[in-house]
Design a protein around this nucleic acid. Sequence first.
DNA 1: ATTTGCTATAGTTTTTATCAATAGTATTTG
DNA 2: CAAATACTATTGATAAAAACTATAGCAAAT
Lengths: 314, 314
Amino acid sequence: MTITQLKYVLAVAEHQNFTKAAEKTFVTQPTLSMQIQKLEDELDILIFDRSKKPIELTEIGKKIVNQARNIVNEADRMQDVVDQQKGFIGGEFKLGIIPTIMPTLLPMFLRTFTKRHPKVQLKIEELTTDEIISKINDNHLDAAIAATPLYQEKIKERALYYEPFVGYIPAAHRLADKKEIQTSDLDIDDILLLEDGHCFRDGVVNLCKSSKLNGDQSFQLQSGSFETLIKLSNEGLGMTLLPYLHTQELQEEQKKNLRYFVKPHPSREVSLIYSTSELKLQIINALYDTIAGVVRGAIAFQDVEIISPTKKSS
Amino acid sequence: MTITQLKYVLAVAEHQNFTKAAEKTFVTQPTLSMQIQKLEDELDILIFDRSKKPIELTEIGKKIVNQARNIVNEADRMQDVVDQQKGFIGGEFKLGIIPTIMPTLLPMFLRTFTKRHPKVQLKIEELTTDEIISKINDNHLDAAIAATPLYQEKIKERALYYEPFVGYIPAAHRLADKKEIQTSDLDIDDILLLEDGHCFRDGVVNLCKSSKLNGDQSFQLQSGSFETLIKLSNEGLGMTLLPYLHTQELQEEQKKNLRYFVKPHPSREVSLIYSTSELKLQIINALYDTIAGVVRGAIAFQDVEIISPTKKSS
DNA sequence: ATTTGCTATAGTTTTTATCAATAGTATTTG
DNA sequence: CAAATACTATTGATAAAAACTATAGCAAAT
């Protein structure tokens, strides 16, 4: 049994196809066939059921793949150990960010980070929370930024900052005259929220503490940007809630419609999250330090109240 | 980096000597030299400081060895996964047993176990608790039987049975007239105990709850068998305490000197212990089932009070 | 100065991994 | 139903590597 063989098994298990897996691992397909057969011979079991199309894992194959992942993860961490000792921070690093955080946070730290750690090749991808969870678990992401807590056993969370919610209330709205608002003012049927999969929504739903989980609003929103929400809100379709950092980029005209919550400000916890296997921990640490550093100045609320996404099935 | 290279590194780290490590790994010494150099080149670090005699690990080398052990352990567990699926119970299995348990317990389960699992090659070694802890941690033992709890982070414990202590009180002793004894009757200066390293002693010391940890007895015992204790006791040097299973093998003459404790019987917890890496778990399970089965009949006390060994530095 | 007890290096052999080419085998399609 | 398609397995050749034997090199001990 070699680490290479195990990597081949993982590749085939992932792509359910020898040919594709061969491309991804930069070897020819016969190489994969032979090496995997060799491993199957050595363990004296069948890992793949090649009669199924597409190819499937056998029962024992699933366990083998799990264990293979353990081994390969530990093996990958060896380079980590060396890098840590050398103080080397570099290499490719895949970072996922949820849509409601991406546009505001990324510009704040990207320049600083790449300048500070020029040897790190950051690959950033906008993903939903569910996509992030699944990609962290199968090692397609090294880390991600999302609203927490996620209640995921295999994912570690390190809080970056607590971002307060701000009410966006157009002039015609019943709350428009208030200078400050509070949680009890809110009515779930009156608030425009983002589609499922944007974890921001979870926070808002919890915030409202509405008993109606499937509130019978007359419409359901499926597009995903705050700009849309603001325009709908201006059209008199209700108020909306914006994360604090997003409000900083509004035009003066729109800022007039903002209403802050009284303390303690309801907030979402935004965290850097990563697999408990803790690969590339130095880069994760460097990212954390950079982001926490730049955000520290931008958000200076106190007595923040944390709004948690509801527990999700992974 | 290959698993083989990592095994070579572990062997050299263990024996602090390429030549010996080569013998143990069944290859020639140049093979080790070259493969380890290759790994060092690949990681671009030095694992061993070859200028020291005997050879030493560098700082980074220690971390490499730790990680190598993780990888090799995970790799070894692959066969475990397969064996478990096949229901196969076999192979070499190294079991340690502390001296105060060995002579009474081993005859009770050895025959049954080897009959039930003929493919398992049991290698049993009598070891002190400290030796057992260290050998489990570096994988020289697959499991052991000892008095617990041990408070070892990397060692799992599964209680096999609770063995009550029985007082052995010669006719001349002040307690000889009692039919039953209780904890409060005991005086630490009056009890003959085994040398350090026999975890049995820890239990007894706790039992007495004496404030004098270094009780100024006029003599200290360094020999290690209960037979010696019984003889010394007969000579009028004090009473002693015997584990229940041991008392079953005394001659009738000596059994007359036994005094049982009133309920709840003070006892020691005897457990099957093994590394949290859980290699060879099927054999461990099989051992547990066999031992717990044969002992269940032999010890039928209730309301047992557990006496814990004091926390030890590993 | 010589022996001892190591590890490293050189040169060779054996084993293994990989490749290109192609055969085999289902499944889909004209 | 034959041909094409989309796969995986097999074959035979080649390159890479791991292992061996023999020996050089280098300290510490005698």
